[in-house]
Amino acid sequence: MTNKKVAIIASNGGLFDAYKVFNIATAAAATDQEVAIFFTFEGLNLINKEANQQLAMPEGKEHFAEGFTKANVPPIPELLAMAQEMDVKFIGCQMTMDVMGLEKEAFVDGIEVGGAVTFLEFAKDADVTLTF
């Protein structure tokens, strides 16, 4: 069986966005699919070592915090580590990093830094492409 490929673009940086991205990514990886995520603009928050510990809920939705605890949803850094353990490839957008004045060291280990073409190269024969 040849593995399916899943290409994800993460371009938003809130807590909900992070769950959407990492849940789909880990589920796909656990189903023997090859996954790459391209983090761009606010999406970079998701792999920023400091920012991803305290991602914001959308305004007015803060009351969901209790629901997250009750449903025993793992924290984002934990999901992120799990995704990396299952070989999900993280690509940080070079252009956004330059604009924001961020260096590779600000992000979790093991990421690749690249431009749009790096992602497109992976995505060109992907079976599923998602944007969050």
């Binding site: 656990a30 449903a71 799990m82």
Partner: peptide, 14 residues
């Protein structure tokens, strides 16, 4: 038990 999606799948895979 007590785990939310996608954890049951991730654990199953392992």
């Amino acid at each position: 038990k007590g785990l939310a999606c996608p954890m049951p799948i991730v654990k199953t895979k392992k």
